[in-house]
């Protein structure tokens, strides 16, 4: 296995939203490691805290949200100790991020060229001319046909797929060590999605890129990620090598997700294979948070440590009391 220290190491991360109506623990003790050149996929229903996790990693949570506890080590540094100025040297430059809605990655009043150059000039101290050149090269790298023309356009003049490419081009032009992608294909059509997956694959190989990909799209995760984390109600309920998690899922929730992949796209409807909806994250509950929706739930599921991750195989952890030992409990 990997003997180098991980590029990103998250331990016991807790983030919440502190609203007038109470506290929502959107991320509740998440831990995982990511090595250089690897991809980790995060899946889970809408509202399970995936976006909050991603925003926490980049220090972008805003009131009423904030990181409460835990550690985020990135390339040896504790990111939680950074002040706003130090964060600015990490965001974009060391850790890039792309979002779900491609058009709204860009300022509607400025051209893509202005925005790419501005980022390059901020982080790499380039002149306007060399920033423009570099932006062109970055767009060409992500497979944009006419980079010069694209740089002169506004986001609203491009298709969703083109915008997402441009957003990826912008992020990669700054040579980040880590890329966070929050539902990067959710708003794209089938063709653009395929292209995007191909592009991620290519970039990963070419740039030795490390990525955290959040997606409903288990197909995408299956093709790209070495490890997969399944999130439910702010916690990781299953973590392991992708082929194991998606191939032989151990947690009933993961099985539910796999059983109804199409419904994942139509969030936030309840999943038919599972009854009920995700719990509201406001109140503290003891025991397994998935138990109310689980057809195999029993009395042991109410014990205090029922929702803790436990190893089932080397590298494969599941937060289910029934996953211990035998394979055929369900």
């Amino acid at each position: 296995m990997n003997t180098h220290p991980p590029l990103l190491s998250v331990s016991n991360l807790k983030s919440g939203y502190f609203t007038r109506h109470g506290t929502i623990s959107a991320v509740d003790g998440v831990s995982f490691d990511l090595h250089r050149g690897h991809m980790v996929g995060i899946v889970g229903e809408s509202g399970s805290g995936k976006s909050t996790l991603a925003l926490s990693l980049l220090g972008l949570l805003e009131r009423p949200g904030r990181v409460v506890e835990g550690e985020i080590r990135f390339a040896g540094k504790n990111l939680r100790a950074l002040n706003e100025k130090e964060w600015r040297a990490v965001r974009g430059r060391r850790i890039g991020m792309i979002f779900q809605s491609p058009e709204s990655s860009f300022n509607p009043l400025a051209t893509l060229g202005q925005q790419m150059c501005e980022a390059l000039m901020t982080h790499q101290g380039l002149s306007q001319a060399s920033a423009r050149e570099k932006a062109e090269r970055a767009l060409a790298m992500v497979g944009m046909p006419q980079p010069k023309e694209i740089l002169k356009s506004h986001a609203f003049e491009l298709s969703g797929g083109m915008c997402q490419r441009a957003a990826l081009g912008l992020a990669l032009s700054l040579n980040p060590a880590l890329l966070l992608a929050d539902e990067p294909t959710a708003s794209l059509d089938v063709l653009a999605r395929e292209e995007m997956i191909g592009l991620f694959k290519e970039m990963k190989k070419r740039l030795n890129l490390s990525m955290v990909i959040i997606s409903h799209d288990l197909g995408l995760i299956g093709k790209l990620a070495e490890r997969t984390l399944v999130m439910y109600a702010g916690k990781i309920v299953e973590a392991g090598p992708t082929w194991q998690v998606l191939g032989t899922p151990r947690h009933p929730y993961t099985r539910g997700l796999l059983a109804c992949q199409p419904c994942l796209d139509l969030e936030p409807q309840p999943i038919p294979a599972m009854t009920g909806v995700p719990p509201s994250l406001g109140k503290q509950v003891t025991g397994c948070r998935f138990a109310p929706r689980c057809r195999w739930a029993g009395s042991r599921c109410m014990s205090d440590d029922a929702f803790q991750l436990r190893p089932v195989l080397a590298n494969h952890h599941v937060a289910c009391v029934k996953s211990e030992g035998r394979d055929d409990v369900f």
């Binding site: 980049l58 430059r93 709204s104 990655s105 901020t122 957003a167």
Partner: peptide, 16 residues
């Protein structure tokens, strides 16, 4: 707005 958060994620200066 999403685009403002995206801009923040790029690490731009406050004045920008």
């Amino acid at each position: 707005a999403d685009f403002f958060r995206a801009a923040r994620a790029r690490g731009l200066a406050r004045t920008t």
